[in-house]
Write a protein that binds this DNA or RNA. Structure first.
Lengths: 199, 199
DNA sequence: TCAATATACGACACCGAGTGACAGGCTCGA
DNA sequence: TCGAGCCTGTCACTCGGTGTCGTATATTGA
């Protein structure tokens, strides 16, 4: 497997020719299976999570968006089987800048979709900025949890970490039903911010 | 300037040879000034923010870490002059996957430093996971603000957006001095998370 | 069984990013 | 004038990635 070569010699130090040859292929054939060298690592890791987008869309419209993200991601994490291979893959990704960048890149369109899904629920009116903010924050949580899980050599309870992070960053004002209006901030003002949910 | 060529023909469609030739240089000399092609874009944009790390460290130890991040980043944003060039650079970065990935990569070590700085203040005892979480969330805020600012063609008030985002994601439990102990979440069940630090 | 077709792979050439090595020039101080 | 140091061009090379073409091996249909 390519993963073995990568973990043994490092990602950048292993050429595609070597991977291909180890698999009994040509470089050209390698690129018929993987669009890029990095994708030989992501093969076993689900980074797109298309189900997440649909799960978000299926959530009740009156649910707090942050809670929706929490529940869906919690369910999604549960399905990930954290094998030894997954651990090795994540470790490699974490320790290789180009791989980490690629992961972020692969998650970019996913974030867009999730953000749209949050707003697309019928009856929901959520500010684009808020939706993007919540989504990016959730992605940051995923990253942090993964990182911590790796730091613990796979012994940490991912679900517990996730819960903790979501509880920790719980938005102050739960927007629900409609947005607070067009947020025209006068030049430098701060302070137009928090309104306790539902007065 | 290289930026003009990029915006005109696209980043991937512009060769280093072309940039170099337009600047009266050789490809070899180009790489003596920029470590990579992408860095010809980041030249005008401060992405590392070394001052941020020091500013964090200079914050009072009894200040809420989230508030520290908020104040420091607010101050930092103020110093960024949002010229037409910056707008063009950011637009290019946003629309080019490889550039966006590179930005994230460049910010990786910065995030580590900020996270460490949060914990390094004398008298502060902050969980590594919490520190990383807050830092990543703050980075997510920066990203979201930048993205929204770009969407508004540079007319949005960045400081106001930043304030709004920081207020919105304000951590539920403000840790200060010491952590609040294990966060046993009801749904999670197993809570082997972390020790309250200093009994 | 035989032929037509599709699929997969190897072989080769090619491009662009990035690096190493070497050979001049240029300036500045002795 | 000489040499040290620096900047730059030139050449050659590696590696990731792609386009093209030829060919072998299945697969299908009669």
């Amino acid at each position: 497997m390519a993963l073995d070569l990568f973990t043994a010699r490092g990602f950048d130090e292993t050429t595609v020719d070597e991977i291909a040859q180890a698999a009994g292929l040509t470089k050209r054939s390698f690129f018929r299976y993987f669009p890029a060298k990095e994708d030989a690592v992501f093969g076993g890791v689900d980074v797109t999570g298309q189900e997440v987008v649909e799960a978000i869309r299926a959530r009740p419209a009156d649910e707090d968006p942050w809670e929706s993200l929490h529940q869906v991601l919690r369910q999604w994490e549960r399905q990930i089987h954290t094998s030894e291979q997954t651990l090795a893959s994540l470790r490699l990704i974490e320790s290789t800048p180009s791989l980490h960048a690629r992961l972020h890149q692969k998650r970019a369109q996913w974030r867009r979709q999730v953000s749209d899904a949050l707003r697309d629920r019928p009856g929901v009116r959520l500010d684009p900025f808020d939706a993007a903010l919540l989504t990016n924050a959730a992605a940051a949580i995923l990253d942090t949890v993964s990182q911590e899980w790796l730091r613990s050599d796979g012994t940490a309870d991912r679900a517990a970490l996730l819960d903790r992070a979501f509880a920790f960053l719980h938005p102050a004002a739960t927007i629900r039903g409609h947005s607070d209006g067009p947020f025209t901030t006068p030049t430098a003002g701060r302070a137009e911010i928090r309104r306790p949910a539902a007065t």
